[in-house]
Design a protein around this nucleic acid. Structure first.
Lengths: 147, 147
DNA sequence: GCAAATAAGATATAATTTATCCTTTTATGG
DNA sequence: CCATAAAAGGATAAATTATATCTTATTTGC
């Protein structure tokens, strides 16, 4: 019932890239440092995100990573599923016929509902939303005051 | 991001007990058989549920298990937390100060919201609700017909 | 005392997750 | 063309967690 480290790292890494100036490319080591993510592990995560088209990566001396598409077209659900595969909150939801009790189990219905709500929330929240909110949070570090 | 087997078994076992006639006690082996749960594993789960007061257990020849309180006073959240401990959907939610970024991380806010919705759903669904629904589902096995 | 049931602790097994190391590939700048 | 800086990929190690069993104790009713 807990998000994997991978998924958490992926979200934070994407957010890191999204909140950097667009003109300079970011390099994974720096992301790892800033976000406190094991560097080598992050390269694996970046690889998955790249394969999903959420990041674009560039090798070589001036290389690094950049967003694969506009931040408002990247949902949190996409990010997490890119590194963890499809989300399901109970095993009986892996696919339609996974559990025999499907049709007679009242718990199954509950899981369907809970999963629907969770996925809905994640699908409707974009990386752009988070990036925008990050700026807000940075500008107002303590309650109500702006220096 | 997936409910543990333990949690799933616990819910189904509780539901099994709740839908049995009250006058006869149920024995864990039978629950395991009906619900397709590894029998020895189920005894551990029953033990946790008993310690949480959700089941009452009786040793000896005529022993078995029964609900520890009325089904409408048992929530799905209680059942799951009794066997899996407190639910949190991301590590940063274990306790208030767990993550340094707390105050500046927009993802953190999202997790708070998602967790709130999930726990709310589970807290508001009672075992009695499920039991009622189980009866409905049994009476109408195929769409719309009652023999 | 015997049989049937749960309780509890120790432990095994397995699976998954997390993380690292090492080598390879690619690109850039001089 | 060479040195360097970056990502890519494969193998594998370490750690954690989940799942399950075995054994022994305890309780109860006859």
């Amino acid at each position: 019932m807990e998000l994997s480290r991978r998924g958490d790292y992926a979200v934070r890494a994407m957010l890191d890239v999204a909140t950097r100036p667009v003109d300079r490319m970011t390099v994974t080591k720096e992301i790892a440092l800033r976000q406190d993510i094991p560097p080598v592990f992050l390269t694996k995560i970046v690889s998955s995100l790249s394969q999903a088209g959420l990041l674009r990566t560039y090798r070589g001396v001036a290389g690094g990573v950049a967003l694969g598409k506009p931040a408002d077209q990247i949902s949190l659900l996409q990010i997490i599923e890119a590194v963890d595969g499809p989300i399901y909150i109970n095993r009986c939801l892996i696919r339609p016929g996974e559990c025999d009790r499907d049709r007679t189990c009242p718990a199954h219905e509950l899981w369907v509902q809970a999963q629907g709500e969770l996925l809905g929330l994640l699908a409707n929240k974009s990386l752009a939303d988070l990036a925008r909110r990050a700026q807000e949070l940075q500008q107002v570090p303590t309650a109500g005051f702006a220096a």
